[in-house]
């Protein structure tokens, strides 16, 4: 169901837990589906011994995908017109992520109503891993 402009106000929020205790297997699953086989995401030996990180870490795009799940659950299917993120911190196996959308504007353009949102995904320590924004078509 699309959101309704008449039922929304600036400052409204929607949040969801998008992943709990992220597994290395899910990261591998994302590598297979997306085609990004960078060893930094699945190869503990390479990542710790050659690249110098404490462990493998998630693709930024996996975190964008998880954030997008919260977003489309909120705004409905096929209504997004814009979705953008900055990856502000890495996401590690074992992380639990919460994503939140906040309404920053409601507007009308050529008879079509839109909602503008800011997005934030944080880990179990409250550290932001993704900061973003989105726009979706909504009903009047």
């Amino acid at each position: 169901m699309a959101l309704k402009a008449s039922a929304l106000k600036v400052g409204d929020t929607h949040s969801e837990r998008v992943v709990e205790n992220l597994s290395r297997t899910q990261i591998v699953q994302y590598a297979g589906a997306s085609g990004d086989y960078n060893p930094l995401h699945s190869d503990e030996v390479y990542t710790t011994q050659v690249a110098g990180y404490p462990s493998v870490f998630a693709h930024g795009m996996l975190t964008m995908g998880l954030t997008g799940k919260m977003l489309t659950n909120y705004v409905g299917d096929g209504t997004l017109t814009k979705f953008g993120v900055r990856f502000t911190n890495q996401v590690w196996p074992g992380d639990t992520l919460d994503s939140k959308a906040t309404v920053v504007a409601l507007r009308e353009e050529g008879g079509q109503h839109y909602v503008d949102l800011t997005l934030s995904t944080t880990n179990q320590d409250g550290k932001e891993v993704v900061a973003g924004s989105a726009t979706a078509r909504i009903d009047p």
């Binding site: 930094l40 690249a51 110098g52 990180y53 693709h59 930024g60 795009m61 964008m64 997004l80 017109t81 814009k82 979705f83 953008g84 993120v85 900055r86 990856f87």
Partner: peptide, 13 residues
């Protein structure tokens, strides 16, 4: 070197 990382991604549908 850690090579490349993804910093931002934006889509317009």
């Amino acid at each position: 070197s850690s090579g490349g990382l993804h910093a931002e991604q934006h889509y317009e549908y």
